[in-house]
Amino acid sequence: MSLREIHLTVNGEARTATVENRLLLVHCIRENLGLTGTHVGCETSHCGACTIHVEGTPVKSCTMFAVQADGKSITTVEGLAGPDGISPVQEGFWEEHGLQCGFCTPGMMMTATALVRVEEEPSEAEIREAISGNLCRCTGYVNIVRAIQFAHRKIHSPAPVPVMAHEGGE
């Protein structure tokens, strides 16, 4: 069994891990780096629960080897909040009730975070297409779409975001 030392930047911090070549990146993140926010849903490249950013691009971390991230900068859900608190995407999921069990949520928010960077407001169809690699068994996606719209407005519209009251809400 050959072990290799890899050096990567994880949520802005330099980290080192000693890994087998065959170790999947998601397992390195959870087990070697101790960041268990990134989930393993299917392990067959379908569900997107393991989505992280590699050099800013959202990818399924169960379908990359940890050695492929050597020298790279990665961001996991733990890296979304900044010194000023939770990110606009996290706030959107909170305000719009974008989660139920929360299993898909870390991956969903990583995909959403990349999507809302683009200045032009995505249509609902574009949002649904963008999250089509992230499966949610609970919400029916409606509130996830709203959460992403909330985040986009918060980032790109100067006006304060009104908190919408939904049917059945407080």
Partner: peptide
């Protein structure tokens, strides 16, 4: 082809 996350790789 596949989904946007797969297409990124």
């Amino acid at each position: 082809i596949a989904d946007p996350l797969v297409r990124n790789r």
